[in-house]
Amino acid sequence: MRFLFDAEQRAFIGSLDKMLTTADTPAVVRAWSRGEHAAGRALWSRLADAGVWALAVPESRGGLGPRPVELAVAFVELGRHAVPGPLVETVTAAVLLAGLPETGPAGRLVPALQAGEALATVAWDAPYALDGDVAGVRLALTGEGLFLSPGHGPVRRSLDPARRLTSLAPGGRLLASGPPPARALLHARLCTAAQALGVGEALLAQAVGHVRRRTQFGVPVGSFQAVKHRLADARIGLEFARPLVFGAALTLDPADVAAAKVAAGEAAYATARAALQAHGAIGYTAECDLSLWLTKARALLGAWGDPDTCRTEVLRGAGLR
C-alpha cells in the first residue's frame, strides 16, 4: 500500500500545470463560448502532445493506457484551468472505440482522437451531447447500440457558457450492438469527478487570493472568522474528495467511482458557493474570470451521473459486500 503519487506522476502534474498556466485559458474559454474554436483546438493539440488522450487508449491500440490514475491527474489539471471542450466525452469515445475491431471505423477514429486531430462527443442517457458542433466524432448510445451520428442539431446554451449543448442526428452507422462496456461509463464518471475536483481547487485558490487582498473596516476580509470558516469548510470538502477520486482511479470499482463523483461534484459546488460569497458582487459578474469556474462547478454536478444516481450506485455496492 502506497497511496501517493510517484515522481513521474508529480512531473506530469507539474508539466500540465505549467503548460496550461501559460496558455491563457480564460481567453480560450471566452472564445470557445462564442463558438470560436481555433484557440481551443490548438490547446487540444498541445494536450495530445502531452499524451493526455493516449492515456485512454490501450497500448495494444497504440496508446499509453489504460492509465486511469494518470487520466484523473490530467483531469484535475484540466478542471483547475477551466479548459473548455468535450474533454470527458473524448476520453469516453476513445474507450468505447478502442473496444471495437480495428477493421471498422474505429481503426481510423482512435488514432485521430489520440493525436488531438478530432474531438469526440457522446450522447448517452442525457438530453444533449456536449459540443456536437465542433466534435468530428459524434457517438450516440441508444437501446439498439452505438451509432456514429451523421450530424447535430442547433446549439443550446448551458448555465456554463463554455459548454455548448447539442442534440445528435438520429441514425448513422451502427458501430456495435448491445449495451456498452461498463468501463466506458466508469471512465466518464471518474474523469468528471477529477475535473470537478480541479474546478473546486481553482475556485478556492481564487477565493483565498481575493479575501487576502480585499480590505474592509481597515483589515483584509479574510481575517474575519465567518469568512475563514466557510473557506475552511470548502477545503475540508475538497481534501476528502481527493483521495476518493484517486482511490476510484485505482480500483475502478463502480461504488468507488460513484462515491468520488458525489464527493468531488458536491465539494466543488459548495466551494463555488463559498467563492461567490467571498468575492461579493464582483464575483457575480460575467467579466470576472471566477465565473468561468463558478458555472462549470454547477454543470459538472449533473454530468455523467448526478448525485442521486451515484448515491444509488454506492448503496448497491455496499449491499454486495
Binding site: 483521495p243 461504488a255 458525489v262 464527493a263 448515491r311 454506492v314
Partner: peptide
C-alpha cells in the same frame, strides 16, 4: 449513502497520511 462515502473517504485519507 453519505455515511458509506464518508467512511471510504476517511479510510483513503488515512492511507494517504500513512503513506
Amino acid at each position: 449513502a453519505d455515511a458509506l462515502i464518508g467512511a471510504r473517504a476517511y479510510q483513503l485519507f488515512a492511507c494517504a497520511a500513512v503513506s
